[in-house]
Design a protein around this nucleic acid. Sequence first.
RNA 1: GCUGGCGUAGCUCAAUCGGCAGAGCAGCGGUUUUGUAAACCGCAGGUUGGAGGUUCGAUUCCUCUCGCCAGCUCCA
Length: 642
Amino acid sequence: MKISIKDGPSGDIQAGVTVGGALSGLGVVDRDILAAKVDGAVVDLSSALSGNSVVETLRFDSAEGREVYRHSSTHLMAQAVKELFPSAQLTIGPALEDSFYYDFAFERPFTPEDLQRIEERAAEIIKRNLAITRREFSKQDAIDFFTSRGEHYKVELIQGFPDGEPITAYTQGDFVDLCRGPHLPTTGVIGAIKLLTTGGAYWRGDERNPMLQRIYGTSFPTQAEVDAYMARLEEIKRRDHRKVGKDLDLISIQDEIGPGLVLWHPKGATVRLLIENFWREQHIRDGYQLVYSPHTARLDLWKTSGHLDYYRENMFPSMKLEGSEYQLKPMNCPYHIMIYQSHLRSYRDLPIRYGELGTVYRYERTGVLHGLMRVRGFTQDDAHLFCRPDQMEHEVSRVLDFTFFVLQTFGFHQFDVFLSTRPKESVGSDEHWTLATSALEAALKSRNISFHLDSGGGAFYGPKIDIKIKDALGRSWQCSTVQVDFNNPERFELNYIGEDGKAHRPIMIHRALMGSIERFFGILIEHYGGAFPAWLAPVQAVVMNITDHQHDYVAAVVAQLKAAGFRVEPDLRNEKIGFKIREAEKAKVPFMLVAGNREMQDGTLSVRGRSGANLGSKTVAEVLDLLQAEVTHTQRELQPAH
RNA sequence: GCUGGCGUAGCUCAAUCGGCAGAGCAGCGGUUUUGUAAACCGCAGGUUGGAGGUUCGAUUCCUCUCGCCAGCUCCA
């Protein structure tokens, strides 16, 4: 049979030879080959070739190769666990993006000491270099086999599999695991394994099921790569917005105030103010009308909107007042709808775009609260667009342009875009769903945005586009969302008078660019590690004197810089210059302006950039230009694309 | 909400077996007048998250409770 290796040789190979055999037969000998893709399917190197095929070799540099590598790593870890803790039962153990986990049914949580031992045992199993072999069972044989081994969770899994299809398991030494594969040829292929953490996880992800013990780990071809991965985890920890937020005195969340309720300290509030000012300016420029709405409303409003039926478990309890009930707002939409409703609208009025930095309150279960990322009171950068069906695609395109422009201004340049379509349970006609979904898709295509399809992932009231940003550490965060809503226009009986003199129902689009200011701020903190660009830095420069002689000079310079609109603070304390520099560095101030006698005589300042850059001596006028240039650097990006 | 872990000074952390709650930094008062990431001396700082219990005696052991952390589930 004819075998051709992708990007490699090809030739005749005897039928029935394994992939690995074919590779070596064609002279492709490479210990880094982990598995192969034959006619599109990822297979073991030990799998047999049955006919003419195109074989693509998979190494650690491909996502599929890494998946096989991590998957075999979970088996390696599971084998180590079974050897040390025979009573632990196997459940499932998949590969993640750059790590893996395995869930065990075990009578107690694993301790860090256990982890240490498991890791050592895993390293030992690597040294044993056990062959990893595939085995097929009939369903009944598989059930008998795993029952005899006491692996009751595996048996439950097998029972859920369709009848008649062969069931596969992989064996390495005494260890056998139910698994579809594929896997590495031997345990010795794994270079370095590192176990990370333990935690609880429900069987099949359902909180009514028993709690299993999950162990997370990672593996790489070399120890150096493991070390680099661990260093990255350290960096993530170092940038944690909860730590940086405290260190830089930006925000606090205090027991006395309540969980998930954020206090914005002056420096955090300064950054927020800058974000909000930018947001408002740009919205006005982009044709939005800004509105305000109260934090509470009669409960009836939430009955009409349907929130009481669909969202109650996420709402704060209502409060009684003067014989009626009031509800703290979990959403801004009903208010914007009521503003729309306050007049009879003409087709000429549309589109109407209402924007609000609207603070909402949602009851989140205690276990899900997380710093600024998940809170109970937060401000959405919300807007609701009311438009005619024929305007939908254009409006969505505008929102997309606006979103990318805003996100890029804040230093985010990588995005993952998802288009979510109709879920099983939904309202609205097929016609509406098709119209809206194709409008969203057309808008994405018109902007040449590549996206992933999340089939059935839409809201019950309409399809949506979600945009996830990637931060400096490559992590994804969901912020922006554009959602079409068929539900609210119906519930509130929204109308506009068309050209034909008749009432028509407008389309409503919900959208948020940053999502929540709290979360976005948390992401920004971690993205920049607290070192905000000059236009966002709460303090842009600190002017420091070397001795008391320059006291008045520094005070005068600060006054001058402040008058020019910059956020500048003096540091006139009786401290050595090294100490003042250290404090300003710790506070992540972009510029440190030092004045000694030399500078005072020349009317200059010695300029130090963040993290030690010596920018030399500059006159006060030159410093003003420098600061202006830094701020304008961002402002240049502020030109909307349309 | 569930499983596990943890709450000690503003911050970071000590305190042996249940036996006088301690250090560094920050703060305050002095000394020092300093050249690019930590000058020196002194002072002050605590209901050990909260409530109850065991005990001659509880930061330490037990119960409850509040909060935080990790994981699960859920989400902006």
